[in-house]
Design a protein around this nucleic acid. Structure first.
Length: 144
DNA sequence: ACTGAGCGA
């Protein structure tokens, strides 16, 4: 009968699970390799007065961005990146503080907070590419 | 139409 096998089955299963004392033989290793580099390519730039704000709502404008970040320091310049053709916001912007400590407070104060129903992320912006030489064809004419 | 990772005219 199959009843005898059913009695002997739990006995073998108990030995199977109790023999799991050595967890090093388990194929599932949630721990990362010890030789891994902590950060081969850091997603965050070095401390700077400029801040990169992402996760903005499509309805968030430059005025709203400066108004919110001005509560943590003096905002020298704030801009929400919008598309030139469509005119809609791309969902991220930049905020420049007067000093670096104000920029740090701005990140600590606005990073992970809600703005217009969206969780925004504030971090140090990367240095922009060189504008090149002063020429009439330079695209850096007009602002700042 | 703006949809959802990102680095700007």
């Amino acid at each position: 009968m199959a009843t005898r096998a059913a009695v002997a089955a739990p006995h073998l299963l108990r030995r199977f699970f109790c023999s799991n004392s050595a967890s090093s033989s388990f194929p599932f290793v949630p721990t990362p390799p010890p030789g891994a580099v902590p950060s081969p390519a850091r997603p965050t730039a070095e401390p700077n007065n400029n801040l990169f704000v992402s996760g903005l709502s499509k309805r968030t404008t430059t005025e709203k961005l400066r108004e919110e970040f001005s509560k943590f320091g003096e905002v020298v310049q704030a801009r929400v990146v919008t598309d030139r053709v469509s005119g809609y916001s791309k969902g991220f912007g930049f905020v420049k503080y007067a000093t670096l400590e104000e920029a740090a407070k701005g990140i600590e104060g606005m990073d992970g907070k809600f703005l217009d129903g969206w969780v925004i992320f504030a971090e140090y912006a990367r240095p922009r590419p060189p504008p090149g030489h002063l020429n009439d064809n330079s695209p850096q004419f007009g602002r700042q």
